[in-house]
Simulated scan of single mutants.
Amino acid sequence: MSSTRVIKTNGIDLFIREAGQGPLVLLCHGWPELSYSWRHQIPVLAEAGFHVVAPDMRGYGQSAAPPDVAAYSIFDTVGDVVGLVQALG
């Protein structure tokens, strides 16, 4: 069973689903998916000994959606992922 929380990173709030302990596995969705799309993989990876995290990416689901279209560049997305990894230790 995964838990959810919000992580502040790169100037926005990212909603995440997470489970398990161990090395970090980050599951990033594409359009038009959400973190929920990984619901079957999260428990399997957690049981295998990983800390599994699946965020709703910027502008999707319960994560922040900046109004400016310029806030959706690949640099912003990479910044979100880097910040998320740092926040998770």
Score class of each variant (00 low, 15 high):
41 Q>L: 13
34 L>E: 01
36 Y>H: 14
48 A>Y: 01
20 G>Q: 13
43 P>R: 01
43 P>V: 05
56 D>N: 05
27 L>W: 12
54 A>N: 06
27 L>M: 13
29 H>Y: 03
56 D>M: 08
15 F>A: 08
44 V>H: 11
19 A>L: 14
31 W>L: 04
14 L>Q: 11
32 P>N: 05
30 G>F: 06
47 E>T: 11
38 W>Y: 09
56 D>W: 06
39 R>A: 13
27 L>A: 09
34 L>G: 01
37 S>M: 03
18 E>Q: 15
32 P>T: 00
14 L>G: 07
19 A>F: 06
15 F>H: 09
44 V>S: 12
40 H>P: 05
49 G>I: 15
24 L>G: 14
27 L>V: 14
18 E>K: 01
35 S>R: 03
17 R>V: 11
31 W>I: 01
44 V>N: 09
48 A>L: 09
42 I>H: 11
17 R>H: 08
35 S>T: 10
42 I>G: 07
33 E>M: 03
51 H>P: 03
54 A>E: 09
25 V>T: 15
35 S>Y: 10
37 S>P: 06
45 L>E: 02
54 A>V: 09
16 I>A: 04
25 V>C: 12
21 Q>S: 15
23 P>W: 13
28 C>I: 14
25 V>N: 03
30 G>E: 01
18 E>D: 14
53 V>G: 11
53 V>I: 02
46 A>W: 05
27 L>R: 09
24 L>Y: 11
53 V>R: 07
56 D>Y: 04
42 I>Y: 07
42 I>D: 08
15 F>T: 06
18 E>I: 00
32 P>F: 00
39 R>C: 14
47 E>M: 13
28 C>L: 15
56 D>T: 10
25 V>G: 05
14 L>P: 12
26 L>R: 10
23 P>N: 14
43 P>N: 00
55 P>C: 04
31 W>R: 01
36 Y>G: 01
37 S>T: 15
49 G>W: 04
37 S>A: 12
